[in-house]
Amino acid sequence: MRKIVVPGEIISDRPLRMEGSIIEDGKTCSTVMGVFDDEKGTLISLEGLWYPRPGEKVIGIIDEAKLNTYTVNLQAPYKGIIISKYTEDIMANGDIVEAIVKDVDKTGMAVLARARRLGGGKVVYIKPSKIPRILGKGNTMINQISDATKSSIEVGMNGLIWVKGGRIDLVLEALVKIQEEAHISGLTERVGSMLKEKTQ
């Protein structure tokens, strides 16, 4: 059985080790709003925050261009940092960048590599917990959206998504639909038929 749980709710009388929960007195207690599946023993956070992990792609906004570094707003608890000499692009405050998390330093800041300036377009924020659904298995969901709308889309695991060209309005509509309905099955089909209907 899947059910929506809230912070402080005892979700199992046994100790289960899951992200978004703590174990107290041998019981498992949720610390987030999430969907708990007692058969699979999984807790998927509905509102969760993003914590950087090495290898993940992110989208960010240049916060401050300094002499040797750029700090990057990732819409997350911690900022990212780009070492200027490791990127070929010259960036200014407010520029949109795509990069890969190389490392996470002890203060929580994400050290970014392979940074690339994304010219034009717009960025929207989708709850990071919904990003896996936005990508879909083997990127099926995002490819479906990109094909139908003829837009270029870059998805950051931190929740920021960059869109340029094509039917941007339709891309946003699809993203919001996924964000809202991620916890209900049959999502790929629903998004597919919505796109089909609106691009005819």
Partner: peptide
Amino acid sequence: MYTKIITEEYIRER
């Protein structure tokens, strides 16, 4: 959180 960030280039284009 609701965030929408657009570039000047994008506004000009639109």
